[in-house]
Design a binder for these strands. Structure first.
Length: 821
RNA sequence: GCAGGCAUGGCGGAAUUGGCAGACGCGCACGGUUCAGGUCCGUGUGAAAGCAAUUUCAUGGAGGUUCGAAUCCUCUUGCCUGCACCA
């Protein structure tokens, strides 16, 4: 009897898999393909438990499907551009390149220690010139198709990271990375035209039944589509019309004032030379001292000033005052609104404060609301009033009718607005993909020619951490010639947002070593889409939205057949300790290294897969880990003992009466595990089922005259169905059972339908829906026979007693419910 | 405010189509093995009442549909997540 020496076993099999190159895959038209992908990590240096969870889940799926005959693509790589490497460079004077490569080496080693079945031949690192060459190539395709443009705009600026941020990277007014409050800065930057795809990104969410509702709803929210109308108001004594956006054209007759965003370009001209000029300047001054967070807080008191001008309502010719106010934002809609205090909460508050008229145009038709003395804005459905020819229409009808009218009169049109902004992709940082653009005095912005890619990151740079791209400090990098006219030119010194790098890596995996093209389209056509994508819900908006955008653009450019990259998405829960996320600052980190050293990778994997279903948060438990370790030892002892006595492999199995229970448990377990992995990803219940089988085998092996061929079959199949979860110990046990070939190449066991049916089944007898007794009856009876049998039993008669039977409900094979008066 | 999700023993969680609530594991208790501790093996373990057979209660709360509800419907409470002066 030997002990379960996990360390030796895990090293042995990891080496074996690597030497045999067992997880390498290629296109094979004769097999059904399956692309399983886990979100690639940032190489911070050490794996954490969240990684272990992510990759263990993916590995169960990959190994299971491989055993089920699928051609499985399961790659891994590194999202290796980004700030930490550059900060390390500033702090320790270490080259970002070396720092990153060291970390990758270390983390690759740790991943191998977990025994995840990756095809390492497809490994990519986004900081590798062989990868970012194609990133630059994609940028140029975007540029050539009008999807990349440069624009001067107030942008989000993180004073700590010393770089700009995309809207998506600003969380609660602070930097997503470091938590520093974000400011505004006027800068000329590169943008991607994601707004061109807003409608498709929204509509195609309907094509993703395999995504969690939560993620789809977050994306819908983020895209923020509003249907409404644009209406033009004339301004008294001013030659330009004021265009507003509204979602409530039906309330157009209830407009009592207008509001412009303080930054609205008209404001200056409208007050120039009037007595209101000073009021407006004072108001703008006050706003400037506020941070973005204060400025946009919902709790902020609504404030504004009248600017001395009037607009004319185009539908009734009414003259209404124009205000500027803090609650109207320049970067949504047209930066101007029509205010209908009777039917908008914000307008109502503002009108009350500044004593502006409130004219109801929607009648609530409710007794408890007096239309002419509203206590609050009425924002629900009702019937139009005070609206001339439109009186009597419902809100829905009114919207359509008014839009039709303004379109006919040429004073407005139906319009759609999105919350989504174009994607700001420039970063004033070193450790990212250089933007392959050159500026020439004569020709303007010119893309670098394809033959000159990649534009390599220079090494002679200074890391100051001061607001300007370090690339600027490299003379040799900056000065170049114009690809168009050959004259002197300078390079773009900014690098790309690292979210670009991760928006197409799943395509590159399909043909990761191609040096001639971004990839061979035939290969992506074979592998794409990703059948199962797995990662944390924190990427629900950023990464997943950007990846969908890239896929659609590449599709439109004829580079990709699919329009959606990820068919199924599994968002795994967090790994918690003492109720909160593991973090260094809280001091509640359990390191994977530590657990692997103490119990082995198989125990770590088993614990994580068994303790909670994948979508839920997982509470770390030291005793739970012990339990998983205990179970593996139990399996080890069982198979070790049986391997010495059981019949040889392939012995014919005869099932006798006394073998039926084990045979039943064995077959149901295979069915449960198969279904749990394939249909539901419920690894916790799959493991439970296997534990029950092990318990039954322990019981059965002590019985007299045990069936040795059956025990052989049970042992083999137990090891096989356990192997996707804990592959190392299973390979070892498989070998112990006398098999010459490795377990990884085995075919997943099937179950015998006949063995799933017992001769006798336990049924429940209920009186008025309450369980009164249980009894065994032969299985496979018809409904009538079953009812006759049960009703004829003395025990049933006893339970009914003297009471008259009103009804009998009979579910064959399950229960009989007798309703008595 | 809007949107999405969650709620089951001391704990993690099961219950797949409306059909035995609490599988499996942790923890705990008792017994065996042991010089002893650990390991391992066995038994028990939702609550309350009872010597017991058994009975009653129980899936956040209140109603409802149904022969039958953790599961379906209505309302409600608490928690988590996302968005938010978005016109």
């Amino acid at each position: 009897m030997s002990n379960y020496d996990f360390k030796a076993i895990e090293e042995k099999w990891q080496k074996y898999w690597e030497e045999k190159d067992l997880f390498h895959c290629g296109e094979d038209a004769s097999k059904e393909k399956y692309y399983v992908l886990e979100m690639f990590p940032y190489p911070s240096g050490k794996l954490h438990m969240g990684h272990v969870r992510n990759y263990s889940i993916g590995d169960v799926i990959a190994r299971f499907l491989k055993m089920n005959g699928y051609n499985v693509l399961h790659p891994m790589g590194w999202d290796s551009f980004g700030l930490p490497a550059e900060n390390a460079a500033i702090k320790h004077k270490a080259a970002p390149d070396k720092w990153t490569r060291d970390n990758i080496r270390e983390m690759r080693q740790q991943l191998k220690m977990l025994g995840i079945s990756y095809d390492w031949d497809r490994e990519v690192a986004t900081c590798d010139p062989r990868y970012y060459k194609w990133m630059q190539w994609i940028f140029i395709q975007f540029y050539k198709h009008g999807l990349a443009y440069k624009k001067k705009n107030p942008v989000n600026w993180c004073p700590s990271c010393q770089t700009v941020l995309a809207n998506e990277q600003v969380v609660d007014g602070a930097c997503e990375r470091c938590g520093t409050p974000v400011g505004k800065k006027e800068l000329e930057q590169w943008y991607f035209k994601i707004t061109d795809y807003a409608d498709r990104l929204l509509a195609d969410l309907e094509k993703l039944p395999g995504w969690p509702e939560k993620v789809k709803s977050m994306q819908r929210n983020w895209i923020g589509k509003s249907m409404g109308a644009e209406v033009e108001f004339t301004i008294e004594g001013f030659d330009k019309n004021l265009t507003i956006f509204t979602t409530r054209p039906d309330t157009l007759f209830g407009v009592t004032y207008m509001v412009l965003a303080p930054e609205h370009p008209y404001v200056k001209d409208l007050v120039a030379g009037t007595s209101y000029e000073k009021d407006v300047a004072d108001f703008l001054d006050r706003l400037q001292y506020m941070s973005e967070i204060e400025r946009t807080a919902t709790t902020l008191e609504k404030e504004g000033v009248f600017i001395g001008r009037y607009a004319i309502n185009p539908v009734n010719g009414k003259k209404v005052p124009i205000y500027i106010a803090n609650y109207v934002l320049m970067d949504y809609g047209t930066g101007a609104i029509m205010a209908v205090p009777a039917h908008d909460t914000r307008d109502f508050d503002f009108a009350k404060k500044y004593h502006i008229d409130i004219i109801p145009v929607i009648d609530p038709k409710k007794d408890d609301i007096d239309v002419n003395d509203l206590k609050a804005a009425f924002i629900e459905d009702g019937v139009m009033i005070n609206s001339g020819p439109f009186d009597g229409l419902t809100v829905e009808e009114g919207k359509a009718a008014i839009i039709k009218m303004i379109e006919e009169k040429g004073i407005g049109k139906a319009s759609v607005n999105y919350r989504l902004r174009d994607w700001l992709i420039s970063r004033q940082r070193y450790w990212g993909t250089p933007i392959p653009m050159v500026y020439c005095e004569k020709c303007g912005w010119v893309p670098v020619e394809e033959k000159d890619l990649p534009v390599l990151l220079p090494e002679d740079v200074e890391f100051t951490g001061k607001g300007e791209s370090p690339l600027k400090s490299s003379e040799s990098f900056m000065h170049t010639t114009c690809p168009k006219c050959g004259g002197p030119a300078v390079r773009e010194s900014d690098t790309m947002d690292t979210f670009l790098d991760s928006s197409w890596y799943f395509l590159r995996y399909c043909d990761a070593r191609n040096t001639q093209k971004i990839y061979d389209k035939e290969k992506t056509d074979y592998w794409m889409p990703v059948d199962q994508y797995i990662g944390g819900v924190e990427h629900a908006i950023l990464h997943l939205l950007y990846s969908r955008f890239f896929t659609k653009v590449l599709h439109d450019l004829g580079l990709c057949s699919v329009e959606e990259p990820f068919t199924n998405l599994l968002t795994q829960g967090m790994v918690l300790k003492d109720g909160s996320k593991m973090s260094k600052s809280k001091g509640n980190v359990v390191s994977p290294e530590e657990i692997i050293a103490k119990y082995g990778a198989d125990t770590a994997r088993l614990f994580i897969l068994f303790t909670a279903p994948p979508e839920r948060d997982l509470e770390w438990s030291d005793t739970g880990v012990e339990g998983s370790y205990r179970f593996l030892n139990r399996v080890w002892r069982l198979i070790q003992e049986l391997s010495e006595v059981i019949a040889p492999s392939g012995s014919p199995v005869q099932i006798r009466e006394e073998d039926k229970e084990l045979n039943y448990v064995l077959n149901t377990t295979i069915k449960r595990v198969t279904d749990d992995i394939r249909e539901r990803f419920n690894f916790n219940t799959a493991v439970s089922a296997i534990m029950e089988l092990v318990n039954e085998m322990y019981r059965y092996k002590e019985t007299e005259g045990r069936n040795l061929p059956l025990l052989r079959k049970a042992s083999d199949e137990l090891v096989m169905i356990l192997s996707p979860f804990v592959p190392h110990i299973c390979e070892e046990l498989w070998q112990m059972l006398g098999h010459e070939e490795d377990l990884t190449g085995q075919k997943w066991p099937s179950y015998d339908e006949k063995a799933l049916v017992k001769d006798e089944i336990e049924v429940v007898i209920q009186i008025n829906g309450k369980v009164k007794d249980k009894m065994n009856v032969p299985s496979g009876l018809s409904k009538d026979d079953f009812e006759k049998l049960v009703m004829g039993l003395p025990r049933t008669k006893e339970l009914i007693g003297e009471k008259p039977v009103a009804k009998v409900i009979c579910v064959p094979g399950k229960l009989v419910n007798i309703v008595v008066k």
